[in-house]
Structure formats: C-alpha cells, structure tokens
C-alpha cells in the first residue's frame, strides 16, 4: 500500500555520513562516486549517528541515509541459536553491513538496531584477516549476509564479489585436505546479471529466501517478486553455482496453505529442484526483546502484531499452527528432494 506520507521524504541516500578515519579509504571514494548529489557529512564514529536516542526506525527507512565506517572490535560472531547452521559445527556470521535496503515488515533488524539507516563497513580486509586466523584452526562456515541483504546492494558496494574472490583465494591457498571455508550469501534479491559475470565457486552457497507472492506483496516491501527471485536462482543453477532455497521464515496469512501451494508450483515450474544444494524450512520466530521494539515501531503491521506465543524468550506462532505450516511444507518438499537435503531449524534444537 502506498503510504500517505511517502512523498514527504528525501530520496534514499540523499545524505551520506562518513567517518573521518575512512574518508580517504578507496571503498569510501568508490561508493561516494556513485552518489554525486548526496550531502556528505563527516562524523567521528558511526555510533554518533547510528545510536542516537529517540530515532524512528520506520521513518528513517523511508529516507535511508548511508553511513560509511570502519568496523572495530569483534569482527566474527558465533551463530545465534535461532539461526540455521545446516549441520556445520563451526558456524559463524559477520556483519560488513548493518540494515537493508529492502523493507520486510517482519525483519528482526527492526528490533535489533536503534536506527533504520544503512551502515557499510569499508574495511572488509580486516574481516577477511580475522576469518583467515580462525581458518588456521578449523573449517569455517560464515554467513556474510545476515544483518543485511548484501546482494541487494551489490551495485553500490561490490561486496558479494569481493567475498567470492576472498573465498576462492582461501580455497587456492589452503589447498586440498586443509581447512575449508564456506560462505553463505543469503538474499531476496534477483541479481540475475551477477551470475552471468561472476564465476561459480565451490566455497560459496547462494541462499535465496522465497515467500508466496501474497506474502511478498503484503510484507516484503521493495523486494523482487517470487518469479524474479526464481529466475535469478535458475540462472545461478544453470551456470553451476551452489544454490539453496530458504522457505524461512514461513509467514502466516489467511489461506496460507493455498499460498504456499501456489508458491511451490511456481518453484517447481522455474527450478529443477534436484539441482539444489539443499533447502531450509522454518516458521517465523523472533526474540522477545526484538518483537517488543518492532511492535512499538510498527503499530500498523499485521505480521508484527500477530499474537505470537512466547517460549523461553522467543516468540513464534502457536504450536499447532507452527506444526501445520512446517509439516505441510516439509511433506511437499519431500516429494521433490531427499530428506537429507531438507533442513528444519527446530530439528537441530532437539
């Protein structure tokens, strides 16, 4: 729905805040060159801007500013319990960007961050160094697009390609029999041309998050349609990229079963499911602290205001509904894929 106040806002990235320390960084210059009309404002530290008191996440998201900064302190995090690890014992995630250009109403970032502005950390090499250190100890599986959608912003940052090159370099330098690096790049984008220009890598998994078109229309604002996402995934598959489909989060809506049925039909029509690396299934869940904030920020969002049940600090759909939704999708997916290729996030918890 078009918001009444939409035309009051500045266009996205009309303002770019740059940390003094990264003013001369080549990536800063490259990114700024893409926004010739933006106001560039110098800041001391990104938190001066990002962590101000009383910010309005929703309003800021309507006129997102960009913050260019250097990531300091911890650069690599161990995976959170609500995340799917796909059986990888050394499961990490990293944040080279915070927030997203898409605007999914149910996005947990809305509960996690105090600001709706987008932060890009330009010192990607420091994160690479950190990963290489850990890689000396054991295998590493890193989700690099968790607190953002990296591929959606590829045209501005080129970060996905930089990650792929890094993974390839690590693969070459480590050689056979050594510790292995695998990256997961999760996206709702439909960056079709990316797969035509970048080479496939056995170290990089492209995870496309899919939802029924009804859910996309209602809650996943500014994201590509299901058809477009599937076209990008099909292109990736046809060129030999490792592709994962994520039916996670599953979102309840009236007539959910028919919606998910139609979605599966479309998936099967556009994708040869047998070629997939795997799929993941999980109904929507979110920590209670995040939901509390999300509800305050989005009083008009049905998906946020759903009467979820609280189970040890994590909100989810009522048990019966969760089971119905997940088991329906699992059953249908098993018609196309062997069981070992289907991951249900709760399974790992038990």
């Amino acid at each position: 729905m078009k918001k009444l106040s939409e035309n009051y806002y500045n266009s996205a990235f009309s303002h770019i805040y740059v940390e003094k320390a990264v003013r001369e960084h080549p990536r800063t210059k490259q990114i700024l060159a893409g926004f010739p009309k933006a106001w560039v404002i110098e800041i001391d530290h990104y938190k001066d801007m990002f962590c101000r008191r009383g910010q309005d996440y929703g309003k800021q998201h309507q006129a997102q500013s960009l913050i260019l900064a250097a990531k300091q302190g911890k650069l690599l995090y161990e995976g959170a319990p609500v995340c799917q690890s796909f059986g990888n014992p050394y499961f990490y995630y990293t944040s080279c960007m915070m927030n997203c250009i898409y605007d999914c109403e149910y996005c947990y970032l809305k509960g996690m961050y105090p600001s709706g502005n987008l932060v890009v950390f330009v010192n990607l090499e420091d994160i690479f160094d950190e990963i290489e250190k850990v890689l000396r100890e054991h295998d590493v599986y890193v989700c690099v697009s968790y607190d953002t959608d990296l591929m959606a912003f590829e045209g501005v940052t080129g970060y996905t390609e930089a990650w792929v090159q890094f993974a390839e370099r690590c693969g070459r330098e480590n050689g056979v029999g050594k510790n292995n690096l695998t990256l997961e790049i999760r996206t709702k984008s439909a960056n079709y041309s990316f797969f035509q220009t970048v080479q496939p890598s056995s170290h990089v998994v492209y995870a496309f998050t899919l939802s029924p078109q009804e859910v996309i229309d209602a809650y996943e604002h500014h994201t590509p349609s299901l058809k477009q996402r599937l076209a990008a995934a099909a292109e990736a598959l046809s060129r030999g990229f490792l592709v994962r489909l994520c039916f996670d989060p599953m979102i309840y809506c009236v007539g959910w079963q028919q919606c998910y049925e139609r979605m599966l039909e479309q998936v099967a029509e556009q994708i040869d499911l047998k070629q997939l690396l795997d799929v993941s299934v999980g109904s929507f869940r979110v920590s209670q602290d995040y939901l509390k904030k999300m509800r305050k920020n989005a009083p008009d969002s049905a998906v946020v205001q759903f009467p979820y049940e609280n189970d040890k600090g994590v909100y989810h759909y009522p048990k019966e509904l969760t089971n119905q939704m997940e088991s329906y999708l699992l059953k249908r997916l098993k018609e196309y894929l062997p069981e070992e290729k289907i991951f249900l996030w709760e399974k790992e918890e038990n």
Binding site: Y8, Y9, N10, H15, I41, I43, R52, Q55, A63, S65
Partner: peptide, 9 residues
C-alpha cells in the same frame, strides 16, 4: 556533535 535527521524534503 549532534546530527538532526534530515528526512523530509
């Protein structure tokens, strides 16, 4: 330093 948001046109 303080940064008022410049959200509106």
């Amino acid at each position: 330093t303080f940064y008022p948001d410049i959200l509106y046109r």
